[in-house]
Write a protein that binds this DNA or RNA. Structure first.
Length: 215
DNA sequence: CACCAGGCAAGTA
DNA sequence: TACTTGCATGGT
């Protein structure tokens, strides 16, 4: 059976991305960099409570205060700067108009996100797929770990290598890409951390390149 | 106690 | 170009 169906049968739909607004999803994408979602939730909740989870609020709050607000998410000084960079980019280029920002064509939107200091390929693609709802496959450390462990890719496969592998074998379906990535993270967390846990992994016996599926 | 979490940029050679 | 290091809280 295909990789996707094995995971879906085991875990069911994951319903990503958590977040009520596109801005909240973008903020979450930055805050979750190398950080558990649990910690991100605390920081997001804090921002909501202060009423600053909006363009103007995030623009007006001083950098040092923003850092304190997002402390639970870790790397708070770094991430406060990264949030400011994104907000400034949308303020300057799109007058702080988020709907206008998301009206950009897919390639231009991705390039724009990548031009923001602190937004790399995974963060940009998470925003592309989950906030902008574009058919861009998100790669992360779990994707690499799982495919490498199953000898589908070699040790030095790059982000782009993995992204191309998935996108060449799947139709451009936002809902499929959404669930696929979420299920990879779920499977990685549950079964791809240490050896013994591999025993009951739904991907056991999955060796050949069987990425193609429909959803 | 060590190790990791839904990365990224900057520094080093 | 190809590694290495800093960033930091909170859970296992």
């Amino acid at each position: 059976m295909a990789m996707f169906n094995r995971m879906l049968d085991s875990f069911g739909p994951q319903h990503w991305w958590p977040g009520e607004t596109r801005l909240e999803m973008m903020v979450g994408a930055i805050l979750t960099q190398n950080t558990s979602w649990k910690n991100v939730e605390k920081a997001i909740a804090g921002l909501k409570e202060k009423g600053i989870l909006n363009i103007e609020g995030l623009h007006e709050i001083p950098l040092s205060l923003l850092a304190e607000e997002i402390r639970p998410a870790g790397y708070f000084n770094i991430k406060a700067g990264r949030l400011k960079n994104l907000i400034n980019y949308i303020k300057e280029g799109y007058d702080g108009d988020i709907p206008l920002f998301f009206r950009e064509k897919t390639d231009a939107l991705r390039e724009g996100l990548l031009s923001v200091k602190g937004i790399g390929p995974e963060t940009a693609d998470s925003i592309m797929l989950y906030a902008a709802k574009r058919p861009v496959f998100v790669i992360d450390a779990y994707t690499y770990r799982i495919l490498n462990r199953h000898r589908v890719v070699d040790d030095q496969a790059t982000y782009h290598d993995l992204q191309t592998l998935f996108m060449d074998n799947l139709s451009e379906d936002v809902a499929l890409f959404n669930e696929f990535h979420a299920l990879i993270v779920k499977t990685g967390k549950e079964f791809c951390r240490s050896k013994p846990l591999c025993d009951s992994c739904p991907l056991n016996g999955w060796e050949k390149i069987d990425i193609q599926t429909s959803y």
